[in-house]
């Protein structure tokens, strides 16, 4: 449980990181908090020959109020989001979801940018970001671009990030009056989600205005429960159970030692109902 030898470069800035990525090609990996990458390197399941450490770039750890949205620096740690007053107030879903990632030690190291870039469908934050319709700011040698969360995750551990690109910022909306919830189902508190459901629900004159539901670990990427979202749109709060019964539609959850795909589908339905109900009560 020792990684193979590799070279180590410290990125002084985002531009420097992009330069280093270009220099080192496919062999290089970006190191943020290291809590997704180092465990698989220790098992020698990943064997990059160069690590580019983003940890020395100070100006990527922030939460800023940008008026219509909040901007979160890619190197902002889970523990920072957990206790950030602005996030707690304006986008509680992110603070709360961050507080469920791993354990306190992991949250002291792991970052939102690392978590999102790794593209693991079992991670909690990506599905919350989907439900929030967050935007990701990406910088590369070709300049800067902004990608919607819905367009970012492409396949199992694959994202739209090019080899010479760095995710620099995550933009999330202010929730204002919208209700939110994240329901994480796991067997032990420290574990990955067997299934997780993020919900953002806007009320409108006593009924549901719109609902957005993000699903964790229900396929090779984080997913939206689009059928349930449509069914909830304009629905009466008393019909949540019926509307969320389609929450697993269009998903392709895997079967493993924790759950069969059938059980995952069932959990997605139950947790979606509970998440929407909780969001409505907030």
């Amino acid at each position: 449980m020792i990684p193979i030898a590799f070279d180590y470069e410290v990125a002084e800035s985002v531009d420097h990181a992009i330069e280093l990525l270009k220099e080192n090609g496919d062999e290089a990996k970006l190191l943020a908090g290291g809590h997704s990458l180092l465990p698989i390197m220790k098992l020698r399941l990943a064997t990059p020959t160069v690590l580019i450490d983003l940890g020395r770039i100070d100006d990527l750890n922030y939460v800023r109020d940008e008026g219509d949205h909040l901007a979160i620096g890619a190197m902002t740690r889970h523990c920072d989001m957990e206790r950030d007053a602005t996030l707690q107030e304006q986008c509680g879903l992110i603070s709360y979801t961050a507080s469920l990632v791993g354990d306190p030690q992991v949250r002291h190291r792991g970052t939102i940018g690392g978590s999102v870039s790794h593209g693991d469908a079992a991670s909690d934050l990506p599905s919350a970001l989907l439900a929030l319709e967050a935007n990701f700011v990406i910088k590369g040698s070709g300049g800067e671009r902004t990608v919607a969360a819905g367009d970012f995750f492409e396949d199992y551990l694959q994202t739209t990030l090019a080899p010479d690109e760095v995710l620099t910022e995550i933009q999330v909306p202010k929730l204002n009056g919208a209700g939110w919830s994240y329901k994480k189902f796991n067997r032990r508190a420290q574990d990955w989600a067997v299934v997780g459901v993020a919900a953002v629900v806007e009320r409108s004159n006593g009924s549901i205005g719109s609902a957005r539901i993000g699903l964790t670990n229900m396929g090779s990427t984080p997913l939206r429960a689009t059928a349930a979202e449509s069914a909830l749109s304009g629905a009466d709060p008393s019909s949540v159970a019926e509307a969320t019964s389609s929450a697993d539609e269009g998903t392709s959850p895997s079967s493993d030692i924790a759950a069969s795909s059938e059980y995952r589908r069932h959990l997605a339905r139950v947790l979606s109902r509970r998440a929407v109900e909780e969001a409505l009560s907030r």
Partner: peptide
């Protein structure tokens, strides 16, 4: 990164030293 037996503090915060490189 599961058991925490290697937990130390970096700048006063708990971390698992089996998942931190010395260079970090």
């Amino acid at each position: 990164t599961s058991c925490g037996a290697c937990t130390v503090h970096i700048d006063g915060e708990s971390v698992k030293s089996c998942t931190v490189l010395a260079v970090q």
